[in-house]
Amino acid sequence: MLILWELFLSFATVGLFCIGGGYASMPLIQAEVVEKHAWLTMREFVDIFTISQMTPGPIGINAATFVGTRVDGIPGSIAATAGFVFPSLIIILILAYLYYKYGDVGAIRGILNGLRPAVVALIASAGVGILLLALWDKEKLPIAVSDTNKIGVLIFALSLAAVHSKKVGTIKTLLASGILGLVFYSLASF
């Protein structure tokens, strides 16, 4: 029981102090998991990175599940994950309540008016990164036209046509793109 509580507390600390999201949480996780509790070796910790690149979910959740499973099986993974989301849950609950109660107050309105275009920019930034990664295997410019992944372009164009038509749902488009990837790349490798 004690170990579950320790997992919960450790990841609650990570969740509470991880501001800015994503890889910003890595040093915090390292401090808790490798240095303080020695639940993982540095080598295993680096592996979490690799795994997170190809499995769903934020890196914090992935780390919590990975560490929790290693330390105490499935109860461990649940305790660690619950710990990681707990601070978010409480803080978001308070902020959401305040937003729906005081969202029309001038100062709050002003802040949100400034943040809305910023959120568009942040989504665009992630989108451009993913697009380059999908079609050129790198996240940043410059790119060379000759390096373009032709199968990627085809799947991208088909998916874009599908979502833009509004006739095919988001999930179905994603599933289809995965299947197309399997089919096209298998054919290409023969």
């Binding site: 568009v120 989504i123 665009a124 998916s159 979502v163 833009h164 793109s177 096209f184």
Partner: peptide
């Protein structure tokens, strides 16, 4: 094969995001 599915899905995800982004940017 896992790699192939993931690589394909990456293109699908990029398409969905681009569609959302263009819509939001144009509205702004």
């Amino acid at each position: 094969y896992v790699q192939m599915v993931l690589k394909g899905m990456q293109c699908g995800v990029a398409a969905v995001i681009l569609d959302v982004v263009l819509d939001l940017v144009l509205k702004q």
